[in-house]
């Protein structure tokens, strides 16, 4: 059986426009690797070079934010539904972290 993954508009260029794709894996890391094997480039938009979940996306397993389920180590079962949404955030200025995030985003885009 498979895990249903809902893809946000901004990432549908990697899935040929598909809103929902299927994948498999025992953890979120495995699922993302599986998706990336068929939808190349998706992983880089979800996982940082340092191996953490990107700040720019929210990932949910069923009704729970994976940040509360162990993030990339979150356990998955057949029949689970995974939803990816763009994190909505911003603000007037960056404190130092925001500047770091911004420069990281630029380098991620440049690397694409």
């Amino acid at each position: 059986m498979a895990i249903e993954v809902r893809i946000p508009t901004i990432l549908r260029s990697y899935t040929g426009g598909a809103k929902v794709v299927e994948g498999s894996g025992d953890t979120l890391t495995d699922l993302i690797a599986d998706l990336d094997s068929r939808h190349g480039g998706l992983k880089a938009r979800l996982v940082t070079d340092a191996g953490a979940l990107h700040r720019f996306v929210n990932v949910y397993v069923n009704d729970e934010d994976v940040r509360f389920l162990g993030a990339l180590d979150a356990k998955l079962n057949d029949g689970d539904s995974v939803t990816i949404l763009p994190a909505v955030a911003g603000g007037a200025f960056g404190f130092a972290a925001a500047a770091a995030i911004a420069s990281h985003a630029v380098s991620t885009r440049a690397a694409r």
């Binding site: 508009t9 720019f56 996306v57 909505v88 911003g90 603000g91 200025f93 960056g94």
Partner: peptide, 25 residues
């Protein structure tokens, strides 16, 4: 529409706003 306020600066997207903007439509 996705909106937010700036409370001490002009209504122009900051670097943070641009970095996060994830709804191209």
């Amino acid at each position: 529409v996705i909106y937010h306020s700036h409370t001490a600066t002009e209504a122009y997207p900051s670097r943070t706003d641009v970095a996060f903007a994830g709804e191209p439509g």
